[in-house]
């Protein structure tokens, strides 16, 4: 039995310890946002956030994550109440087939949490492990910039109390 904190909630996982986190999320917990792309940690579609860092859930066995905090795309917002990152991707229509997008959003979120003022260069470098074959790269970049702008603490506004 492995215990994980999934999107803020403590969950006990019955799967055998060698099961990749991705299978646990999708098959056992019904969290289907993270996608199975290559199963080799090489395409990024399965990316989730573990303790603040973007990791490939397909090559991460649950046993090494005992007690750690996992955030999936479901943790960023729901269909009815999308979070800022999701709203930005919708606004920029950054998905074509969309298979790679959940992973992209998770890594982008981890980056913005760490550095709300991430430069274009930093965003590009950060997203290097993610493959998209539809080719919406420029829209993806715009969406991440938009999410950054909308979630960034606005110094001037907070001073005037809005």
């Amino acid at each position: 039995m492995t215990t994980l904190i999934i999107n803020g909630e403590s969950r006990s996982v019955a799967a055998s310890p060698d099961t990749p986190l991705l299978y646990v999320l999708r098959d056992e917990l019904g969290l289907n946002a993270a996608k199975y792309g290559c199963g080799l940690g090489q395409c990024g579609a399965c990316t989730v956030i573990v303790d603040g860092k973007a990791v490939f859930s397909c090559v991460t066995a649950v046993t090494v994550l005992e007690g750690r905090a996992v955030t999936t795309l479901e943790g960023l917002g729901s269909h009815d109440a999308p979070g800022p990152m999701q709203l930005a991707f919708i606004a920029e229509q950054a998905a074509q087939c969309g298979y790679c997008i959940p992973g992209m959003m998770m890594r982008a979120q981890a980056l913005l949490n760490r550095d709300p003022h991430a430069t274009d260069e930093a965003i590009r470098a950060e997203l290097q492990p993610h493959l998209c074959r539809c080719g919406t790269h420029m829209r993806i970049l715009r969406a991440i910039r938009r999410a950054a702008e909308e979630t960034r603490p606005k110094a001037a506004e907070s001073r005037t109390g809005r």
């Binding site: 080799l40 973007a54 090559v59 492990p129």
Partner: peptide
């Protein structure tokens, strides 16, 4: 060959 890093997992 390429390999994912595990520094953020381990």
């Amino acid at each position: 060959p390429i390999m994912p890093g595990f520094g953020d997992v381990l």
